[in-house]
């Protein structure tokens, strides 16, 4: 076991993947609790497809993928939020339109420019090898910023998640906090996409929150539980991926799913 872990850490790309992965898993778990409770579970999925489109266009134009994807996905998140509020196109329909549209554009651009190659595969299903040194630096900085903002606005985000009307009626700028949540989610989705893949990133957001909600009853304990489950799922998933050569993203999701199953079972007798 120890030998296995040492061998894993002897590869520089594994160390990089672990550093980024742990930070992104942490952020995803924090935001996930708010998103699940606000019934926005699918927003991560929608945004990741937009991210896929952006990355495809970036690589066709030989631009840095993160530099293109982060602003595009943040813009998409804003737009989804505005559409949701104005009510012209309802939240879930808007998400569906965005995600499939962007995915189609991405696939088109990719097949015309570079052809449908292994690259597409790594964007859709993730690859721990994908992270370059520069990517890692950007990812670390951005996730630390997300973390700081989240902790700073923790109480506000709770108030807006629990009861938006009350928060608004008592003078809170709920629009600002919703926008903050959307932007943070967008950033985390893009960062996590390289590791998890566009198709699997939303599980990183949703599973830890759901698992923690099975076991814990207060908001703070749900948050901390989600973080713990997320980190555990990531580490176990990476380990499995390294051992069997399975894609990291899929391995992490399988572990998350198992954790969710176990915790649901454990919590079952308590449910009335």
């Amino acid at each position: 076991m120890i030998e296995y872990v040492t061998r894993m850490f002897s590869y520089p790309f594994m160390v990089r993947a672990l550093a980024v992965g742990l930070l992104v898993s942490l952020c995803a778990a924090l935001l996930g609790v708010s998103l699940v409770l606000k019934r926005y579970s699918m927003i991560g999925d929608g945004l990741s497809h937009v991210g896929f489109g952006a990355v495809a266009v970036a690589s066709a134009l030989h631009l840095a993928p993160l530099a293109v994807a982060v602003p595009v996905v943040v813009a998409a998140a804003f737009l989804l939020l505005l559409l949701g509020e104005s009510g012209r196109l309802k939240g879930d329909a808007a998400t569906a339109v965005f995600s499939t549209g962007a995915l189609a554009v991405g696939v088109m651009v990719m097949s015309v420019s570079t052809g449908m190659n292994a690259d597409v595969n790594s964007y859709l299903f993730g690859s721990i090898l994908a992270a370059s040194r520069q990517d890692v630096a950007v990812s670390v900085v951005l996730s630390v910023i997300v973390l700081i903002l989240y902790v700073f606005f923790y109480e506000k985000l709770f108030a807006v998640t629990f009861d938006e009307t009350f928060a608004k009626a008592t003078g809170m700028k709920t629009g600002v906090y919703n926008a903050l949540l959307a932007v943070l989610t967008a950033v985390v989705v893009v960062l996590g996409m390289r590791m998890m893949g566009a198709l699997l990133i939303s599980s990183l957001i949703v599973f830890p929150a759901l698992t923690a909600m099975r076991l814990f009853r207060s908001y703070r304990s749900v948050i901390l539980g989600a973080v713990a489950f997320s980190l555990l799922g990531f580490l176990a998933g990476i380990g499995i991926s390294f051992g069997w050569g399975a894609p990291a993203g899929a391995s992490i999701v399988v572990v998350d799913m198992a954790l969710f199953g176990i915790c649901s079972f454990a919590a079952w007798p308590r449910r009335r």
């Binding site: 409770l37 606000k38 019934r39 109480e155 506000k156 709770f158 108030a159 629990f162 009861d163 009307t165 009350f166 928060a167 009626a169 008592t170 003078g171 809170m172 909600m213 814990f216 009853r217 207060s218 908001y219 703070r220 749900v222």
Partner: peptide, 27 residues
């Protein structure tokens, strides 16, 4: 102060009573 109609979201919200009441002081 405002006491809303209860929403289904709230009925299943994992938060302690203390956390909920304390959030009223946010303003």
């Amino acid at each position: 102060g405002y006491v809303p109609q209860q929403t289904p979201v709230q009925r299943d919200f994992p938060a302690s009573v203390w956390e909920v009441v304390l959030s009223g002081t946010q303003n």
